Amino acid sequence: MDSPITGTAAGVPFTALPPAGDTAAPLIVTWHMLDAPRSNAAFAAALPMNDLPAWRVHLGMPMCGERMVDGSIDAIGELIRKDPLMSFLYPFVQQATEEFPAALASIRAQLPVDDGPIGVLGGSLGGAVALRILADTEIPVFAGAVVNGAIRLRSVVDLFPGDYPYDAESEKAVDSLDFVAKADALAARAPLLVVSGEVDHPALRTDAVDLVDALGERSELVSIPGLAHPLADEPGIEPAPQLPPARKVDASLTKWFRRHLTAAS
């Protein structure tokens, strides 16, 4: 396969994997997890989708990879200790969503991608970004997918120790990222693949089932045996060999996007 292309798009780091050939090809954009793999380069290695006739451009999440503070994730830990929802989860999704239109325009200017609808993919918290692109923007999308996705942000908040002290502002924020409640908007936009590890957090597994039930025929649920929440071993910042469960996820994503690329063309 061709070597990855690295760069920045409107200030957002990316790792791009080109398709075979030198003609303009469709584009699939991804947002990585905050668990391993927690950088665009590591996510590209975990889920390369090498057999797709499309560009796969893996974007970096805020304060991750090349945007880490002092080359570590310690600054993220400090935000979590301060307020896991309003200092970490919610603003990260907000920033990644808001910076995407300019990043997309820059990607189109830099790479030979076609001007048709894109595919979107997100893992864990990156899944909330992909779902927000679908639910809350008008960017044309031919298909989407999430892997162990943050489908209801409230479920993610519940994974942190202690009872979160919700107030009016944080209740509004967390409810704005409940994508089961936004199922009608998602279903109107594009078909969605929901990939769920069979040993992921139980609440996230439940949310995956609930979302697919709410979406109906516009969605598909794939359960991956042996897959917990992460897709790679720690520390998950640098590219690493693909683990067997991630290989199964990669195959499911490749099949899904290939099917919908064919339908779109």
Results as ranks from 00 to 15, higher is better:
133 I>K: 00
238 E>A: 15
120 V>P: 01
168 A>T: 09
236 G>P: 13
132 R>F: 04
147 V>K: 10
245 P>K: 02
132 R>I: 03
128 A>T: 02
173 A>H: 12
190 A>H: 00
179 F>H: 12
178 D>N: 15
229 H>E: 13
156 V>F: 04
230 P>A: 08
175 D>M: 11
205 R>I: 15
250 D>I: 10
212 V>Q: 13
127 G>W: 06
187 A>V: 01
130 A>R: 00
162 G>D: 10
184 D>Y: 01
151 I>W: 05
166 Y>R: 10
173 A>K: 07
207 D>T: 12
158 D>P: 05
130 A>D: 00
158 D>M: 10
182 K>T: 02
207 D>G: 13
149 G>L: 08
127 G>E: 03
183 A>K: 08
208 A>F: 05
176 S>V: 05
235 P>K: 05
219 S>F: 05
139 I>P: 01
201 H>V: 13
248 K>P: 01
217 E>D: 15
148 N>T: 13
185 A>S: 14
230 P>Y: 03
193 L>R: 09
164 Y>V: 03
204 L>I: 14
201 H>I: 09
119 G>I: 00
162 G>H: 03
244 P>I: 04
192 L>D: 05
192 L>H: 03
241 P>Q: 07
139 I>G: 01
205 R>F: 12
126 G>P: 01
173 A>F: 14
199 V>Y: 02
214 A>W: 05
207 D>Y: 02
214 A>L: 08
144 G>M: 07
233 D>M: 08
135 A>M: 10
210 D>Q: 15
136 D>G: 06
207 D>H: 02
183 A>T: 07
175 D>W: 04
207 D>P: 14
215 L>S: 08
148 N>F: 10
202 P>L: 14
195 V>S: 08
228 A>I: 06
222 V>Y: 05
181 A>I: 08
193 L>A: 04
177 L>Q: 12
185 A>N: 09
217 E>W: 07
189 R>C: 04
151 I>F: 10
179 F>M: 06
190 A>E: 00
209 V>D: 13
122 G>K: 04
218 R>W: 00
143 A>N: 01
150 A>C: 14
166 Y>S: 07
176 S>M: 11
153 L>Q: 11
246 A>N: 06
200 D>K: 10
214 A>T: 09
155 S>A: 14
242 Q>F: 05
201 H>F: 15
157 V>C: 06
202 P>D: 14
184 D>S: 14
192 L>S: 03
182 K>V: 04
169 E>T: 12
146 V>C: 12
